[in-house]
Design a protein around this nucleic acid. Structure first.
Length: 950
RNA sequence: GCAGGGGUGCCCGAGCGGCCAAAGGGGGAGGACUUAAGAUCCUCUGGUAUAGGCCUUCGAGGGUUCGAAUCCCUUCCCCUGCACCA
């Protein structure tokens, strides 16, 4: 197995079969999203890259000049994190890379260098892809940190900036203060998937300082009855742009990343504030500061205002306090507390004036420490947000939906400088892998791609409109995402990558640097030999956009050649990628193509992939639940892996790697090889497939086999055209094999006699079959092709053509009738259980065929009409019998379509030995009622002869 | 919550108005071959029936139709994505 793989790899490489250059043939350019090589390649990746390879090989056999390139996306931050974790000897990371990614120890220590990591894995990817037999033109391979590629990216980003599609702004990110880095979910020890909430900070004046409260519901400011402080946590006074804010100490830890120069002035004792009054900035009303234990110092600002009508926590805290005489006495709050009552703010169906009170009662919450409080808050929050309205008694906003009013309140208060925005995690804790508590940091001076720009969106939708999307359902997703995409932060301050040409402190974000790189493939083989310094904007303007200038530094002839190559291959015919990239990468691709290229260079098709499962569970490197592709190849062979991956699911469906089924696939492949040698064995001499002796077939079963072959070729071809690899293999391998099994079983006797027709049929099947499977199992196919006299490489062979004339419905029906008779006989024998000797088969007389035809013309089982027309046509004398048969045919016709009269007598005589063998009885065929002791002849109808067993 | 996609026989999955008791795998049962095992091939794998039939089934309920797994409505459940991350 290994030997054969090595043998063909060498031959393919030596012949440079995969190197594609412009020629007179029709071109086809196909790419898959390039991998980010931060780990070893597993079988999930194997599927991703096998699909385009199969398609590329198929299309080459169809006569296209196909370009299938590959490169490595190494820009970005993850490897930086990995490298530093390896440097830190983080046990989890070391274990992952040693045991899951199987990096040898001596290489692992070198992975303290992020560039080494991507070098190591891209190299490994390359080798595994080579072993898989992928027909990649490796001359065009590159990494996204190559100096020449960086030049291309600089050109691209400048183009977008010139077009006004990039702007400055700021954005909150999850951030680790110790690593001084933004963190993604994969960088977290705890808190994966936790969302970031936008909170409104509302400022309540207290003397010369401001108590800053945080809320998700700024509209409830109208119903604020008091402020809650937690006497058990630490508070500080900080300087915020000249204002003196009071917030919790923990809040300062987070907020100093969001507000510039947020310096602590002094510590504040919360006890001193309790019982004091502050001013509601919206209403001007004075409200008291009161103690509450539910207030979380880590969340928001560590201070909240109380709106007991709609916030269950506020409501219960108020009750708690009213009943807590100890606390009231301690702070001397008696007079203050007793007067506080909830103020109605929202109305929502199903609740009265004080929704918070009702939900607390419903969930049986008894105090502010109750964990169910969260549930109550969430439920009411969602309900009021989606269905609530501001109460009519409230001026200006009365009757407006909660959803709308929230924005108005927020906007107005921010304008009045009585509020501002902050961000916080929806839940806690969020811990970085380094062990540090994460915060939300506002990255300012960020650069953004203006994906919100309506004109750009519109143009992008045009790109989408011109594309074929497979599967078609995904088109809706694209539309949705393109419309929904907001401005995208396209600059980063850590990671590998290209710097922003006009703002050197920033790196270009990795999804932004990989949007039109498919164009780079077409010219990469030239650029690798050119000094990057010569690759200025003028060069790319000329090559990619045909904008001429005197600034081009590269030799003009070469520039022309490069430009011609780009124009030959572009636009991209197919882009393949995984589902999770629909909302970003694949949409960005459309955005950027629309912005930079003219319509004739816009992409033409996109295919979306599903995920991989392993024995029914989600595949995941970080959880160790993967099988490395390398190991799979070693264990089963590349062809088996390819075959399984292509056969078990369509590309866009999730496939499930199950060892039992992989082994089944392996057996099928072995069967195929054996079949080839079996054909030669039957022939008894050297089998030369390029020189099959023609014969004239006459037996139904031989014609049937040829018909099936052509049918399967047709179906497989049509399926492959639209990337249905599973369906294609279903036809080209499994169903065809089933038919071959059946055929060989049927002609068993003839095989022994070396019947020339059978040899012809089998040779013809084999010859087409090897070509049919060549895109899927290239090694096996080349080997068999060579062994049985194929011409040249099967790689270059012509894709098998089906002959529509050889696909015959009547032939197919004939075999169906034979099989049905055998099935019916066995069924009857099962029921009667008696001793039987002979089987009589009665064929339908001509007039019943006429009747079937009349019924078919009517088109539906309308018995009355069938009888009427039949009598009128005078097909038979006995009108009663016509009625009986019409009823029968009426029932049958929906199941068995009329396909014209066929010669049942000949068909059954052809198969009489077979039927007799299968049933173990003597078989007699009758065309009349000469011998009909049980009156069965009358049961015979077309396609369904009557049976009598005696 | 919003958006998209699904629920099919023991399991995975095809089918998306009548050839549907429902392709193809896997698993199971029986048979042929073999000293045996494996591999391979054949048959069966919803129920029932002494003549090829009948009955029940494609998440649940209702409807359209001569006819529904397939179309429409209602309902329950599951999966994926929701961004600054490749």
């Amino acid at each position: 197995m290994k030997d054969i793989e090595k043998k063909w790899q060498e031959k393919w490489d030596n012949e440079k079969l995969f190197e594609s250059n412009p020629n007179e043939k029709e071109k086809l350019f196909i790419t898959v999203a390039f991998p980010y090589p931060s780990g070893a390649m597993h079988i999930g990746h194997g599927r991703t890259y096998t699909v385009p390879d199969v398609y590329a090989r198929f299309k080459r056999m169809e006569g296209y000049n196909v370009l299938f390139p590959m490169a490595w996306h190494v820009t970005g931050a993850p490897v930086i994190g990995i490298a530093s974790r390896i440097q830190r000897k983080d046990p989890w990371t070391l274990d992952l890379y040693e045991n899951v990614h199987k990096v040898p120890k001596e290489k692992l220590i070198k992975m303290e260098d992020p560039e080494y990591i991507v070098r190591y894995f891209s190299n490994e990817y390359h080798n595994v892809m080579h072993d898989m037999g992928f027909s990649i033109d490796w001359r065009r391979e590159f990494k996204t940190i190559d100096p020449t590629y960086k030049k291309f990216i600089e050109w691209q980003i400048k183009k977008l900036k010139d077009k006004g599609l990039i702007k400055k702004g700021k954005h909150p990110v999850k951030y680790c203060p110790r690593d001084k880095n933004p963190v993604g979910d994969h960088d977290l020890l705890e808190g994966e998937g936790i969302e970031v909430n936008e909170l409104t900070l509302i400022k309540f004046k207290h003397d010369n300082e401001i108590l800053v409260t945080a809320t998700l519901r700024p509209e409830t400011i109208i119903g604020a009855t008091n402020i809650w402080l937690n006497p058990n946590i630490e508070y500080v006074q900080v300087n915020a742009n000249g204002e003196k804010w009071v917030i919790s100490k923990d809040a300062h830890h987070n907020l100093k990343n969001q507000i510039k120069d947020l310096k602590i002035i002094k510590e504040i004792k919360p006890e001193g504030l309790i019982g004091e009054y502050v001013e509601n900035p919206f209403t001007g009303k004075k409200i008291p500061i009161l103690p509450a234990s539910f207030v979380d110092g880590e969340y928001g600002s560590g201070i909240v205002f109380s709106e007991p009508a709609d916030a269950p926590a506020d409501y219960i805290a108020l009750l708690d306090l009213k009943n807590n005489s100890e606390l009231i006495d301690k702070y001397e709050l008696g007079n203050i507390v007793k007067d506080i009552e909830p103020i109605n703010v929202c109305n929502v169906k199903g609740y009265g004036k004080i929704p918070a009170a009702e939900i607390i009662e419903k969930l049986e919450i008894t105090n502010q420490e109750d964990p169910k409080l969260q549930e109550a808050t969430n439920e009411l929050y969602k309900l009021e947000f989606s269905k609530g309205k501001i109460s009519d008694n409230i001026p200006v906003f009365g009757g407006i939906s909660v959803r709308e009013s929230r924005e108005s309140f927020k906007k107005q208060m921010i304008e009045d400088n009585t509020a501002t925005i902050m961000y916080d995690f929806a839940e806690r804790p969020v811990i970085c892998r380094c062990g540090e508590r994460c915060v939300i940091k506002i990255m300012d001076n960020q650069w953004f791609m203006k994906y919100s720009d309506p004109e750009w969106k519109e143009k992008t939708l045009k790109v989408l409109k011109g594309e074929t999307i497979i599967p078609t359902e995904i088109r809706n997703n694209f539309e949705y995402y393109i419309n929904w995409l907001d401005d995208w932060a396209c600059s980063r301050n850590v990671g590998l990558g290209t710097k922003l040409p006009w703002d050197n402190q920033w790196l270009i974000e990795p999804l932004t640097d990989s949007t039109i790189y498919m164009s780079y493939y077409t010219i990469a083989k030239f650029l690798r030999d050119i000094d990057p310094e010569l690759l200025n904007d003028a060069f790319f303007d000329k090559v990619l956009l045909n904008i001429d200038s005197n600034d081009i530094l590269v030799n003009r002839e070469l520039v022309d050649e490069i430009q011609a190559e780009f124009n030959y291959w572009y636009p991209l015919d197919w882009r393949l990628s995984a589902k999770d990239l629909v909302g970003n990468h694949l949409s960005f691709l459309m955005f950027h193509h629309s912005a930079i290229y003219p319509p004739e260079k816009w992409p033409k098709g996109t295919v979306i992939f599903g995920m991989g499962l392993l024995e029914g569970n989600k595949m995941s490197s970080s959880k160790g639940n993967v099988i490395l592709l390398k190991d799979a190849i070693d264990q089963y062979g590349a062809d088996v892996v390819r075959l399984f991956l292509m056969a078990s699911a369509e590309p866009w469906q999730d496939f499930d790697w199950r060892e039992k089924e992989v082994l089944g696939t392996k057996r099928k492949l072995e069967w195929f090889k054996k079949f080839a040698s079996r054909v030669e064995e039957i022939k008894g001499s050297f089998l030369n497939l390029s020189n099959i002796e023609e014969v004239n077939l006459s037996r139904t079963i031989d014609l049937w086999m040829i018909s099936q072959l052509n049918k399967h070729i047709k179906e497989a071809t049509e399926a492959l055209e639209v990337f249905q690899t599973r369906k294609a293999l279903q036809e080209a391998l499994f169903l065809l094999k089933k038919d071959i099994d059946h055929y060989m079983y049927r002609v068993n006797q003839l095989i022994e006699n070396q019947d020339p027709d059978v040899i012809y049929v089998l040779s013809t099947v084999l010859e087409s079959w090897i070509r049919l499977l060549a895109p899927f199992i290239p090694y096996t196919s080349e080997e068999l092709w060579e062994q049985y006299g194929g011409d040249g490489f099967v790689f270059n062979a012509e894709w098998p053509k089906y002959n529509e004339n050889l696909i015959s419905e009547k032939i197919e029906r004939s075999e169906y009738i034979v099989e049905n008779i055998i099935k019916d006989i066995s069924q009857i024998q099962n029921i009667v259980k008696g001793n039987t000797k002979k089987i009589h088969i009665y064929l339908a007389p001509d007039w019943k065929w006429d009747l079937y035809k009349i019924a078919d013309n009517i088109g539906k089982p309308d018995i009355g009409q069938i009888i009427g027309k039949s009598i009128k046509a005078n097909i038979h004398d006995d009108k009663k019998e016509i009625a009986v048969v019409a009823k029968k045919i009426g029932r049958e016709m929906t199941k068995t379509h009329y396909i014209g009269k066929i010669n049942e007598e000949q068909i059954l005589n052809d198969a009489i030995d077979y039927i007799s063998n299968e049933s173990g009885k003597e078989v007699i065929i009758h065309t009349d009622r000469d011998y009909d002791p049980q009156n069965k002849f009358k049961n015979a109808i077309p396609y369904k002869p009557a049976i009598f067993i005696e």
